[in-house]
């Protein structure tokens, strides 16, 4: 029993903390402070509202609407970011030329381009996907850039001395080296992508998760709004912890990058 508790201590205590948090929230607003529905909601109402939105299909439709531009923008970021980062790392002069400009963009709050993107591309899928692309591409560029620069030159020379061609260098040395960097970049990028989805939909949209949160808050339907916030939290944790788990399993020697 003690051994079992010692092994599972972290998940047990963590889940207990979360359960206690929700119970305390419910209890305080039921017996402690009288509930003012225009300021706060309580878990029983939130979950009831969430089930209603699930049964009516509203939640699933909103998730699909928001998911489509996320997929487009994210895939485009992978397709552009990784090759660009690899070229920047492999061709030294390209790296010298692009690094300062792109670093300036990466360090600045790129969400600020949202009004411009909406002026140029509209409020539909195209506008959202562009904004997502702009935010997601930088982690991919800089992580594959750093990955290529950490390639072991000894390995390159070894492949060359055994008669390897340029293609073999990429297949045998470069891709395996940058893969952990790229996966870590994918984890940063998904967080930025979710920010972009919300910004795009807060600004102007008629459907989607972000729109629904803004709509419920305008209508002061706080229990439904909390439901959507919880859904987004669960999705965000699932994405980032899922990628972190993949990193730990696939590249155990690189944990904590």
């Amino acid at each position: 029993m003690d051994k079992f508790f010692e092994d599972w201590r972290r998940p047990i205590l963590g889940s207990l903390a979360i359960i206690c948090f929700f119970l305390a929230w419910e209890a305080i607003l039921t017996w402690g402070i009288p509930l003012n529905k225009f300021i706060i909601s309580k878990p029983s109402l939130i979950f009831a509202g969430l089930f209603q939105d699930m049964n009516s299909g509203l939640l699933w439709r909103d998730l699909l609407i928001s998911g489509r531009p996320l997929v487009f923008g994210y895939v485009a970021a992978v397709l552009v970011g990784i090759p660009l980062g690899v070229v920047m790392g492999w061709r030294v002069r390209v790296g010298y030329s692009l690094d300062p400009l792109l670093t300036a963009f990466y360090a600045s709050p790129l969400v600020a381009v949202a009004p411009l993107v909406i002026i140029y591309f509209g409020v539909g899928v195209a506008g959202k996907a562009t904004l997502i692309f702009i935010l997601c591409v930088f982690p991919f560029i800089f992580n594959s850039f750093a990955g290529v620069r950490s390639v072991d030159l000894l390995l390159i020379n070894a492949v060359r001395s055994f008669g390897g061609r340029e293609w073999d260098l990429y297949r045998i040395v470069i891709v395996p080296t940058i893969l952990p960097f790229v996966v870590a970049g994918a984890r940063f990028a998904i967080g930025r992508g979710l920010i972009a989805v919300l910004v795009g939909e807060f600004f102007a949209a008629s459907e989607g998760v972000g729109y629904r949160i803004a709509f419920y808050s305008d209508m002061y339907v706080l229990d439904r709004m909390f439901g959507y916030i919880l859904v987004i939290m669960v999705i965000a944790v699932a994405f980032t912890e899922g990628i972190r788990w993949a990193e730990r399993t696939a590249f155990p020697w690189r944990v904590g990058m």
């Binding site: 889940s15 979710l194 919300l198 944790v237």
Partner: peptide, 18 residues
């Protein structure tokens, strides 16, 4: 830890209307 992980993973933007 669960709360820190959850809130850190979530875009803090969702709390803005609240």
């Amino acid at each position: 830890d669960p709360f820190v992980t959850a809130i850190n993973a979530t875009p803090r933007l969702v709390f803005l209307p609240l």
